[in-house]
C-alpha cells in the first residue's frame, strides 16, 4: 500500500513562508506518521527536519499538525486516513524549519508557574500521601509537554503571553498535591491577565491531549481557585 504525504516545508535560509511538498510512502496497518517521516528522511530527502525520539508517545517530541489537527506523529497512523495527509509544524508556535516549532515560549511559560514542590519542612523522610490524595492530582501529573494543547488553543494563538493549558495544568497539579505549600506563590501568576482568566473554555485542548489529561478542566479549576483567592483576599487584613 502507498500513501501521499503533503509536507509543509520551510527553510528560513531560503523561504519566506512554508510551501507544500508531496512524498509517496509505502505503508501498512502499523505505519505511523512518524514512520512515514522517517522513511522520507532516510530514503527520499535527508534534508527534511523534524523532532522525534521515543516513538512510544511518552517523550513528547513529535507533535505536528496532521490534516489541521495537532497530533503526536508516533501515535497517529496512516491507516486512519483515506486520502492525502497534510503534515505541518505545530500551529500557533513559530516554525523554525520544516516541522520544527520554536518551543522556547512553551518552556518559559512552564517555568513561570513554579512547577516544583514548595515545602519548607526538611525532614529526611517521605511524606505520607494516601492513594486518594494522590488521585487528586495524579492525572494532571501525566503531561508529557508535547505542546499539542497550545496548538489547539486559539487564545494562545491570539495572545502568546497567555500561559496556556499545559503550564496552568502543571500549576494546578502542584496546587492539588497534599505535600505542597506553594499555592500562595503560584496564585499571582494564575490570577494575572495571562493566567487562568485568559481561558474561554474552548475545550479543544482536552480533545487533542494525547494523554487525556483534560487540561481545560485543570485551567477552569484554576479559575475557581483564583476566584476563591480573590474573595479571601478581600477579607484578609
Amino acid at each position: 500500500m502507498q500513501k501521499t504525504l503533503v509536507i509543509q516545508r520551510y527553510n528560513p535560509e531560503q523561504d519566506h513562508k512554508p510551501h507544500p511538498q508531496h512524498f509517496t510512502v509505502p505503508c501498512d496497518d502499523s505505519t505511523s506518521v512518524l514512520d512515514a517521516l522517517l522513511y522520507i528522511q532516510q530514503q527520499l530527502d535527508p534534508t527534511l527536519a523534524f523532532r522525534w525520539s521515543c516513538r512510544m508517545a511518552i517523550c513528547g517530541s513529535c507533535g505536528v499538525m496532521v490534516n489541521g489537527i495537532p497530533k503526536l506523529g508516533c501515535k497517529t497512523f496512516l491507516r486512519d486516513y483515506k486520502d492525502d495527509i497534510t503534515v505541518e509544524a505545530l500551529a500557533h508556535f513559530a516554525t523554525e524549519k520544516d516541522l520544527i516549532s520554536d518551543m522556547s515560549v512553551f518552556l518559559t511559560h512552564l517555568q513561570a508557574v513554579k512547577p516544583y514542590l514548595i515545602n519548607h519542612d526538611t525532614r529526611p523522610q517521605p511524606h505520607q500521601q494516601t492513594p486518594k490524595q494522590l488521585a487528586k492530582y495524579a492525572k494532571f501529573s501525566n503531561c508529557i509537554n508535547c505542546g499539542l494543547c497550545y496548538s489547539a488553543c486559539p487564545q494562545f494563538g491570539l495572545n502568546p503571553a497567555f500561559l496556556g493549558p499545559a503550564a496552568l495544568t502543571l500549576a494546578q497539579r502542584y496546587n492539588l498535591d497534599s505535600r505542597d505549600q506553594g499555592k500562595a506563590q503560584r496564585m499571582p501568576q494564575l490570577n494575572g491577565k495571562n493566567g487562568v482568566w485568559g481561558c474561554t473554555f474552548v475545550g479543544f485542548c482536552s480533545d487533542v491531549c494525547p494523554k487525556q489529561l483534560d487540561p481545560a478542566a485543570a485551567v477552569n479549576q484554576g479559575k475557581v481557585a483564583s476566584a476563591a483567592d480573590f474573595v479571601i483576599g478581600i477579607f484578609k487584613p
Binding site: P12, G68, A94, T95, D102, P154, G157, V202
Partner: peptide
C-alpha cells in the same frame, strides 16, 4: 533566526468544526 510566525486572522474560528461549535 527567521522563524515563520503565522498570524490568526479574524475568521480563525471558521477553519475548524470544533471552533465553530465553540
Amino acid at each position: 533566526n527567521r522563524a515563520y510566525q503565522s498570524q490568526l486572522r479574524r475568521n480563525w474560528w471558521l477553519k475548524h468544526g470544533y471552533y465553530q461549535r465553540y
